[in-house]
């Protein structure tokens, strides 16, 4: 008389329907329970709130560059010389692995702001200090796998696929920018 133990999946249609609805409800419940756990892994609100950084440009002399930390990553702020700007503008876009005009990468010609993380595998390229190797294009050189970036932070040679990323920033005055 007692069931032999097989699941009562087969049977009258009403039986199946009840089983199906119940199982569906339970599945929705399980999914609903999983969501808060996954969402808790996303950046918390205080982390999202610390997303901006103010940088004072006055101390940076022409030809100099500084590195600031923003969202845990280095950001290169370079005060470009006229020669740097001319060299960047003189490049034909077809030559570039990741074509982008220099004008599209800066808001004011003499200030270049890029995230200092190589787009290949994430090393921090050299070129910030006067004694650093700057690569063949006088920009930055990544020692990990030999990517060369130019004075606009664009990839010219090497395994990196894309130009150095330009973060969102805005001039809050002539001598201050807000990144993020």
């Amino acid at each position: 008389m007692a069931d032999s133990g097989e699941a009562t999946a087969s049977g009258t249609p009403r039986r199946d329907f009840l089983n199906l609805v119940t199982a569906a409800f339970a599945a929705v419940g399980v999914g609903a329970v999983a969501w808060p756990f996954i969402a808790s892994l996303e950046p918390a609100r205080d982390v999202l709130a610390l997303a901006t950084l103010d940088v004072d440009l006055e101390p940076i002399a022409e030809g100099q560059a500084i590195t600031v930390m923003w969202r845990g990553k280095p950001v290169f702020v370079r005060h470009r010389t006229a020669a740097d700007i001319a060299a960047a503008r003189a490049v034909t876009l077809a030559q570039l692995p990741d074509p982008q005009p220099d004008q599209a990468r800066v808001q004011r010609d003499q200030w270049l702001v890029v995230i200092g993380v190589c787009t290949h595998l994430g090393c921090v390229p050299l070129g910030q200090r006067p004694t650093d190797a700057k690569g063949e294009f006088n920009g930055w050189f990544c020692p990990c796998h030999g990517s060369h970036y130019d004075t606009s932070g664009r990839i010219r040679r090497g395994p990196a696929p894309r130009n150095l990323e330009v973060p969102q920033y805005a001039f809050t005055s002539d001598t201050r920018i807000r990144i993020g």
């Binding site: 008389m1 007692a2 069931d3 009562t8 039986r15 009840l18 089983n19 609805v21 119940t22 409800f25 339970a26 929705v28 419940g29 609903a32």
Partner: peptide, 21 residues
């Protein structure tokens, strides 16, 4: 509310399974 509905459904399933007992 969700759990109350689910409780009703699960109880119905349980009663049906136990009907022959």
């Amino acid at each position: 509310l969700f759990l109350t509905v689910l409780a009703g459904l699960v109880y119905a399933v349980k009663r049906r399974i136990w009907a022959d007992v």
